[in-house]
Amino acid sequence: MIRFVVAAVAALLLSACSEPVLVPEAGPNAPGFSYRPAPRSPAPPRVELLSDRPRTSAAAAGAIDSVVRQKDVFEISGWALLARKKPRGVLRVVLPPDVEASVVDVRSVERPDVAAATSDDANQWAGFTVTIEGDLPREAGVCVLSRSSQGTFRLGGSDEGLCPA
């Protein structure tokens, strides 16, 4: 019995001093894992509001995901092909002629899905949310054009009456 206990304790000590056998591949305690600070979002793109219909057409890229209307304010969310670093480019928001509006806030949004779909890490922060003060009628659409070092594009979901396809 004493021999067994001595052998068991020795085995435990030896195994405890050796490298772990079962090591996780990912997560805390995995080789190479380290806690990192959250990445800072890059500067948002510049936003211009237009009420005149552009004359030239542009290739399609990006998308308007949603236009949320509230009282005296509306919010446009989507993604566009923008530059990775500042200056990131310009979003031209074309509104119906009778809508008086001004930009309140612009934010960059992380879009790993866009980076994965385009196989380009430069598009990790392709998302945007633009908050605009103004009364956008329920039936009215919007058009968004993006211009950056990646080119000039018309975002999917844009109203064809406001900018040519």
């Binding site: 195994s15 050796s18 772990p20 056998v21 079962l22 090591v23």
Partner: peptide, 10 residues
């Protein structure tokens, strides 16, 4: 403590 693993989950 036995050294099989040093991960809480495992």
């Amino acid at each position: 403590l036995t050294g099989v693993t040093d991960d809480l989950l495992i």
